[in-house]
Write a protein that binds this DNA or RNA. Sequence first.
DNA 1: CCAATCCGATTGACGCGTCAATCATTCCCG
DNA 2: CGGGAATGATTGACGCGTCAATCGGATTGG
Lengths: 163, 163
Amino acid sequence: MADARRRSTPTAGELAAWREYIEASERIRRAIAAGLADQEGISPGDYGVLLALAEAPDRRLRSSALADAVGWERSRLSHHLARMERRGLIAREECGTDSRGADVVITAEGLHVFRRSSASHFALIRDLFVDALTPAQLDALQEASAAIRTHLAEQGAPDAIAG
Amino acid sequence: MADARRRSTPTAGELAAWREYIEASERIRRAIAAGLADQEGISPGDYGVLLALAEAPDRRLRSSALADAVGWERSRLSHHLARMERRGLIAREECGTDSRGADVVITAEGLHVFRRSSASHFALIRDLFVDALTPAQLDALQEASAAIRTHLAEQGAPDAIAG
DNA sequence: CCAATCCGATTGACGCGTCAATCATTCCCG
DNA sequence: CGGGAATGATTGACGCGTCAATCGGATTGG
């Protein structure tokens, strides 16, 4: 891959940091998801889609624009939209200019759910994430996360730049 | 707790930190999983199970002990073991002392896969995670992650203490 | 000894995510 | 025009994760 040949394996400390990091991130992800499911009956993915649509001009987006907005692969979005459509949160409508794909629109119900959910969403982030950290830790976390994303975009997947 | 402002919604900066954090963690998780799948044909979950079994006395564990070791729910482990058994990585054997459940053992094939995978696993962690960060960032990340875990254990799920 | 119960573990249903394959429409070149 | 290739999007298969229900052996109280 890179220039280097075989380099050293991570130290015990580095491995411990990795484990702590990945463990914490999965736990908080699950906790937020569980809280959102419990309080509002939606998943973080649902929330992201509703947010993107609610903020879009005319509250409608082409599938691919929506995929870019939430940073997902097409097929993932397609599956997710199918589930959300089944629940009445979004709908697909013919698009005048190019009938290869449909516009995705948020329903009245979807908009209602989105507005109701925002408070829960914010409260969960505050209670489980922000309140867990000092301001300095929060900054450090953001900085390190940005470094990881940049590094992944350079090293790993060129498409991972998202947004 | 006395601070009333703590009840307000997260600030824009706090939200941005959250988004950066969760985005980075999901991306790196996927990248590691993809690399491991690509190079060794296993998932991080497979690796964790194989590791726990390889390190266990006699290379065997009761299901519940294994669940504790990897920090998973029972049913998740049960499903995962079914898939791993199908692939010949582990096997279930009768347990002498209590035949309600079986011992989980690692097969020769599983042990082989585990040993082969370790190098890839370490290299991926080094390339995608450790190399992305300065030593100070790594430390800060570990510390913040630990704070999140502690906080979740206190606030969220009392059972989340895991391992 | 036998029922009630507890406990270890599995199962089924269903949502979620990825990959590869597929459709349908539009674009483009002859 | 007509017949590909490119593009927008969906589908199917399958692994993964959670919840609720269940199963069967172990315990225990009468």
